[in-house]
Protein backbone atom coordinates (compact mmCIF):
# COMPACT_ATOMS: atom_id res chain seq x y z
CA UNK A 1 0.00 0.00 0.00
CA UNK A 2 1.55 3.20 -1.14
CA UNK A 3 0.10 5.59 1.39
CA UNK A 4 0.47 3.38 4.43
CA UNK A 5 2.27 5.55 6.95
CA UNK A 6 4.01 2.55 8.40
CA UNK A 7 2.01 1.06 11.18
CA UNK A 8 -1.16 3.13 11.36
CA UNK A 9 -3.43 0.15 10.92
CA UNK A 10 -1.00 -1.93 12.91
CA UNK A 11 -1.22 0.42 15.86
CA UNK A 12 -4.95 0.01 16.26
CA UNK A 13 -4.61 -3.71 16.91
CA UNK A 14 -3.06 -2.86 20.25
CA UNK A 15 -6.71 -2.50 21.23
CA UNK A 16 -7.39 -6.10 20.31
CA UNK A 17 -9.83 -6.67 23.19
CA UNK A 18 -11.99 -3.61 22.43
CA UNK A 19 -12.10 -4.43 18.76
CA UNK A 20 -13.30 -7.96 19.45
CA UNK A 21 -15.98 -6.79 21.87
CA UNK A 22 -17.28 -4.15 19.48
CA UNK A 23 -17.09 -6.53 16.55
CA UNK A 24 -19.03 -9.21 18.41
CA UNK A 25 -21.58 -6.60 19.37
CA UNK A 26 -22.04 -5.70 15.68
CA UNK A 27 -22.30 -9.34 14.70
CA UNK A 28 -24.89 -10.05 17.34
CA UNK A 29 -26.95 -7.11 16.21
CA UNK A 30 -26.93 -8.48 12.66
CA UNK A 31 -27.40 -12.13 13.60
CA UNK A 32 -29.88 -11.66 16.43
CA UNK A 33 -32.33 -14.04 14.82
CA UNK A 34 -29.68 -16.71 14.28
CA UNK A 35 -28.79 -17.61 17.84
CA UNK A 36 -30.16 -21.05 17.04
CA UNK A 37 -27.44 -21.68 14.45
CA UNK A 38 -24.35 -20.47 16.25
CA UNK A 39 -23.54 -19.98 19.93
CA UNK A 40 -21.93 -16.87 21.39
CA UNK A 41 -18.96 -18.96 22.41
CA UNK A 42 -18.37 -20.22 18.88
CA UNK A 43 -18.75 -16.76 17.44
CA UNK A 44 -16.23 -15.36 19.92
CA UNK A 45 -13.81 -18.19 19.18
CA UNK A 46 -14.11 -17.62 15.41
CA UNK A 47 -13.70 -13.87 15.77
CA UNK A 48 -10.65 -14.14 18.02
CA UNK A 49 -9.03 -16.65 15.71
CA UNK A 50 -9.73 -14.46 12.68
CA UNK A 51 -8.19 -11.38 14.30
CA UNK A 52 -5.14 -13.42 15.32
CA UNK A 53 -4.56 -14.17 11.61
CA UNK A 54 -5.74 -10.79 10.32
CA UNK A 55 -3.39 -8.71 12.49
CA UNK A 56 -0.08 -10.15 11.22
CA UNK A 57 -1.33 -10.00 7.61
CA UNK A 58 -2.13 -6.30 8.08
CA UNK A 59 1.33 -5.59 9.42
CA UNK A 60 2.88 -6.63 6.11
CA UNK A 61 3.14 -3.89 3.51
CA UNK A 62 0.55 -5.50 1.32
CA UNK A 63 -3.00 -4.43 2.08
CA UNK A 64 -4.23 -4.51 -1.50
CA UNK A 65 -3.56 -7.91 -3.03
CA UNK A 66 -5.16 -10.63 -0.94
CA UNK A 67 -4.06 -13.33 -3.38
CA UNK A 68 -0.49 -13.02 -2.04
CA UNK A 69 0.93 -15.63 0.32
CA UNK A 70 0.79 -13.44 3.45
CA UNK A 71 -3.01 -13.45 3.19
CA UNK A 72 -3.32 -17.18 2.66
CA UNK A 73 -3.96 -18.12 6.33
CA UNK A 74 -6.65 -15.42 6.53
CA UNK A 75 -8.34 -16.64 3.34
CA UNK A 76 -8.14 -20.28 4.42
CA UNK A 77 -9.78 -19.48 7.72
CA UNK A 78 -12.45 -17.29 6.11
CA UNK A 79 -13.08 -20.10 3.61
CA UNK A 80 -13.68 -22.63 6.35
CA UNK A 81 -16.00 -20.26 8.25
CA UNK A 82 -17.89 -19.58 5.04
CA UNK A 83 -18.22 -23.25 4.16
CA UNK A 84 -19.45 -24.24 7.59
CA UNK A 85 -22.03 -21.44 7.50
CA UNK A 86 -23.22 -22.48 4.06
CA UNK A 87 -23.77 -25.99 5.39
CA UNK A 88 -25.46 -24.74 8.60
CA UNK A 89 -27.97 -22.78 6.54
CA UNK A 90 -26.91 -19.14 6.97
CA UNK A 91 -27.92 -16.79 4.17
CA UNK A 92 -25.17 -15.29 1.97
CA UNK A 93 -25.54 -11.84 3.57
CA UNK A 94 -25.45 -13.28 7.06
CA UNK A 95 -22.25 -15.06 6.12
CA UNK A 96 -20.66 -11.95 4.63
CA UNK A 97 -21.66 -9.96 7.73
CA UNK A 98 -18.93 -11.78 9.63
CA UNK A 99 -16.28 -9.77 7.77
CA UNK A 100 -18.25 -6.65 6.93
CA UNK A 101 -19.20 -5.95 10.54
CA UNK A 102 -15.51 -5.61 11.33
CA UNK A 103 -15.54 -2.26 9.52
CA UNK A 104 -17.22 -0.35 12.31
CA UNK A 105 -14.78 -1.18 15.13
CA UNK A 106 -11.81 -0.71 12.81
CA UNK A 107 -13.05 2.67 11.64
CA UNK A 108 -13.67 3.75 15.20
CA UNK A 109 -10.10 2.86 16.16
CA UNK A 110 -8.68 4.60 13.11
CA UNK A 111 -10.59 7.74 13.95
CA UNK A 112 -9.17 7.66 17.47
CA UNK A 113 -5.67 7.01 16.20
CA UNK A 114 -5.31 9.49 13.32
CA UNK A 115 -8.49 11.55 13.61
CA UNK A 116 -6.48 14.75 13.76
CA UNK A 117 -5.00 14.26 10.29
CA UNK A 118 -8.03 14.41 7.95
CA UNK A 119 -6.13 13.39 4.81
CA UNK A 120 -4.44 10.44 6.47
CA UNK A 121 -7.71 9.35 8.05
CA UNK A 122 -9.48 9.43 4.67
CA UNK A 123 -6.69 7.38 3.15
CA UNK A 124 -6.70 4.79 5.89
CA UNK A 125 -10.48 4.50 5.81
CA UNK A 126 -10.42 3.97 2.08
CA UNK A 127 -7.73 1.34 2.26
CA UNK A 128 -9.47 -0.52 5.05
CA UNK A 129 -12.79 -0.44 3.22
CA UNK A 130 -11.26 -1.83 0.03
CA UNK A 131 -9.52 -4.58 1.99
CA UNK A 132 -12.59 -5.61 3.97
CA UNK A 133 -14.72 -5.52 0.80
CA UNK A 134 -12.32 -7.89 -0.91
CA UNK A 135 -12.43 -10.28 2.02
CA UNK A 136 -16.23 -10.01 2.07
CA UNK A 137 -16.47 -10.85 -1.61
CA UNK A 138 -14.18 -13.79 -1.09
CA UNK A 139 -16.49 -15.02 1.68
CA UNK A 140 -19.47 -14.83 -0.64
CA UNK A 141 -17.57 -16.65 -3.38
CA UNK A 142 -16.72 -19.55 -1.09
CA UNK A 143 -20.28 -19.57 0.23
CA UNK A 144 -21.61 -19.82 -3.32
CA UNK A 145 -19.22 -22.62 -4.19
CA UNK A 146 -20.13 -24.56 -1.07
CA UNK A 147 -23.82 -24.26 -1.87
CA UNK A 148 -23.16 -25.54 -5.37
CA UNK A 149 -21.28 -28.49 -3.93
CA UNK A 150 -24.20 -29.25 -1.64
CA UNK A 151 -26.59 -29.16 -4.62
CA UNK A 152 -24.32 -31.40 -6.67
CA UNK A 153 -24.08 -33.82 -3.79
CA UNK A 154 -27.85 -33.90 -3.41
CA UNK A 155 -28.29 -34.45 -7.14
CA UNK A 156 -25.94 -37.39 -6.97
CA UNK A 157 -27.90 -38.79 -4.04
CA UNK A 158 -31.15 -38.39 -5.95
CA UNK A 159 -29.67 -40.22 -8.91
CA UNK A 160 -28.77 -43.11 -6.64
CA UNK A 161 -32.24 -43.12 -5.11
CA UNK A 162 -34.04 -42.97 -8.43
CA UNK A 163 -32.31 -46.00 -9.89
CA UNK A 164 -32.66 -49.01 -7.63
CA UNK A 165 -31.32 -52.33 -8.81
CA UNK A 166 -33.57 -55.09 -7.46
CA UNK A 167 -33.07 -58.82 -7.30
CA UNK A 168 -35.98 -60.77 -8.81
CA UNK A 169 -34.54 -64.24 -8.37
CA UNK A 170 -31.20 -65.80 -7.57
CA UNK A 171 -29.15 -64.74 -10.58
CA UNK A 172 -31.73 -62.31 -12.05
CA UNK A 173 -31.54 -58.55 -11.49
CA UNK A 174 -33.92 -55.84 -12.68
CA UNK A 175 -33.83 -52.04 -12.97
CA UNK A 176 -37.26 -50.49 -13.38
CA UNK A 177 -36.60 -47.11 -15.00
CA UNK A 178 -39.15 -44.41 -14.30
CA UNK A 179 -39.30 -40.88 -15.68
CA UNK A 180 -37.33 -39.04 -18.29
CA UNK A 181 -33.93 -40.46 -19.04
CA UNK A 182 -31.18 -38.04 -19.82
CA UNK A 183 -27.73 -39.05 -20.86
CA UNK A 184 -26.22 -38.59 -17.39
CA UNK A 185 -28.91 -40.53 -15.59
CA UNK A 186 -28.81 -43.37 -18.09
CA UNK A 187 -25.08 -43.61 -17.62
CA UNK A 188 -25.40 -43.77 -13.83
CA UNK A 189 -28.08 -46.46 -14.09
CA UNK A 190 -25.95 -48.51 -16.41
CA UNK A 191 -22.85 -48.29 -14.25
CA UNK A 192 -24.86 -49.27 -11.17
CA UNK A 193 -26.43 -52.19 -12.98
CA UNK A 194 -23.14 -53.55 -14.29
CA UNK A 195 -21.54 -53.24 -10.85
CA UNK A 196 -24.52 -55.04 -9.27
CA UNK A 197 -24.11 -57.84 -11.80
CA UNK A 198 -20.55 -58.37 -10.57
CA UNK A 199 -21.45 -58.00 -6.89
CA UNK A 200 -24.29 -60.51 -7.00
CA UNK A 201 -22.89 -62.80 -9.68
CA UNK A 202 -26.14 -62.55 -11.62
CA UNK A 203 -26.26 -63.95 -15.14
CA UNK A 204 -29.39 -62.05 -16.14
CA UNK A 205 -30.25 -58.37 -15.93
CA UNK A 206 -33.56 -56.88 -17.03
CA UNK A 207 -33.84 -53.19 -17.85
CA UNK A 208 -37.52 -52.28 -17.75
CA UNK A 209 -38.45 -49.05 -19.51
CA UNK A 210 -42.23 -49.19 -19.04
CA UNK A 211 -42.12 -45.94 -17.06
CA UNK A 212 -40.03 -44.05 -19.58
CA UNK A 213 -42.10 -41.63 -21.69
CA UNK A 214 -39.63 -41.12 -24.54
CA UNK A 215 -36.40 -42.64 -25.73
CA UNK A 216 -34.14 -40.50 -27.87
CA UNK A 217 -31.15 -41.65 -29.88
CA UNK A 218 -28.67 -40.94 -27.08
CA UNK A 219 -30.63 -42.92 -24.52
CA UNK A 220 -31.26 -45.79 -26.90
CA UNK A 221 -27.56 -45.95 -27.65
CA UNK A 222 -26.75 -46.04 -23.94
CA UNK A 223 -29.19 -48.92 -23.55
CA UNK A 224 -27.56 -50.79 -26.42
CA UNK A 225 -24.09 -50.14 -25.01
CA UNK A 226 -25.17 -51.50 -21.66
CA UNK A 227 -26.41 -54.68 -23.29
CA UNK A 228 -23.07 -55.06 -25.07
CA UNK A 229 -21.07 -54.31 -21.92
CA UNK A 230 -23.09 -56.83 -19.90
CA UNK A 231 -22.45 -59.42 -22.60
CA UNK A 232 -18.70 -58.76 -22.44
CA UNK A 233 -18.83 -59.33 -18.70
CA UNK A 234 -20.62 -62.62 -19.22
CA UNK A 235 -24.18 -61.66 -18.37
CA UNK A 236 -27.34 -61.38 -20.46
CA UNK A 237 -29.23 -58.13 -20.55
CA UNK A 238 -32.91 -58.05 -21.52
CA UNK A 239 -34.85 -54.89 -22.27
CA UNK A 240 -38.51 -55.02 -21.36
CA UNK A 241 -41.49 -52.69 -21.46
CA UNK A 242 -40.85 -51.05 -24.81
CA UNK A 243 -44.15 -49.31 -25.55
CA UNK A 244 -45.46 -49.22 -29.14
CA UNK A 245 -44.66 -45.51 -29.63
CA UNK A 246 -41.11 -46.04 -28.43
CA UNK A 247 -40.67 -49.06 -30.67
CA UNK A 248 -41.91 -46.95 -33.56
CA UNK A 249 -39.56 -44.06 -32.86
CA UNK A 250 -36.67 -46.46 -32.45
CA UNK A 251 -37.32 -47.85 -35.88
CA UNK A 252 -37.54 -44.33 -37.30
CA UNK A 253 -34.21 -43.46 -35.69
CA UNK A 254 -32.74 -46.45 -37.48
CA UNK A 255 -31.61 -48.14 -34.27
CA UNK A 256 -30.54 -51.72 -34.62
CA UNK A 257 -31.93 -53.86 -31.81
CA UNK A 258 -31.43 -57.19 -33.53
CA UNK A 259 -28.74 -58.47 -31.14
CA UNK A 260 -30.79 -57.57 -28.11
CA UNK A 261 -33.41 -59.69 -26.39
CA UNK A 262 -36.48 -57.50 -25.95
CA UNK A 263 -39.73 -58.44 -24.23
CA UNK A 264 -43.06 -56.64 -24.01
CA UNK A 265 -43.32 -56.76 -20.23
CA UNK A 266 -41.12 -57.30 -17.19
CA UNK A 267 -43.08 -60.52 -16.50
CA UNK A 268 -42.24 -61.89 -19.95
CA UNK A 269 -38.59 -61.03 -19.41
CA UNK A 270 -38.54 -62.82 -16.05
CA UNK A 271 -40.10 -65.95 -17.54
CA UNK A 272 -37.58 -65.84 -20.40
CA UNK A 273 -34.65 -65.56 -17.97
CA UNK A 274 -35.96 -68.39 -15.78
CA UNK A 275 -36.40 -70.67 -18.80
CA UNK A 276 -32.90 -69.83 -20.00
CA UNK A 277 -31.61 -70.86 -16.60
CA UNK A 278 -33.34 -74.21 -17.02
CA UNK A 279 -36.37 -73.70 -14.83
CA UNK A 280 -39.73 -75.13 -15.86
CA UNK A 281 -42.79 -73.22 -14.76
CA UNK A 282 -45.80 -75.41 -13.96
CA UNK A 283 -49.13 -74.86 -12.34
CA UNK A 284 -49.84 -77.83 -10.06
CA UNK A 285 -52.99 -79.63 -11.15
Amino acid sequence: MTTNKQGTIEKIFVHQKEIIDEWLHEQFAALSARQDLISELDLRRQSTEFLALFTPACSTDNLTDITQSEWKPVLDFLGSVSRSRAIQGFSPSETATFVFSLKQPLFARLRQEVGADAVLLANELWNTTVLIDKLGLYTTEVYQKSREEIIKHQQAEMLELSTPVVKLWEGILAVPLIGTLDSVRTQVVMENLLQSIVDTGSSFAIVDITGVPTVDTMVAQHLLKTVSAAKLMGANCIISGIRPQIAESMVHLGLEFSDVVTKATLADALVYALRQMGFVINKPA
Partner: peptide, 9 residues
Protein backbone atom coordinates in the same frame (compact mmCIF):
# COMPACT_ATOMS: atom_id res chain seq x y z
CA UNK B 1 -14.70 -55.29 -14.86
CA UNK B 2 -17.72 -53.07 -15.58
CA UNK B 3 -15.59 -49.97 -16.31
CA UNK B 4 -13.47 -52.00 -18.71
CA UNK B 5 -16.56 -53.41 -20.45
CA UNK B 6 -18.09 -49.93 -20.86
CA UNK B 7 -14.82 -48.62 -22.29
CA UNK B 8 -14.45 -51.49 -24.75
CA UNK B 9 -17.96 -50.88 -26.07
Amino acid sequence: RPAVAITIV
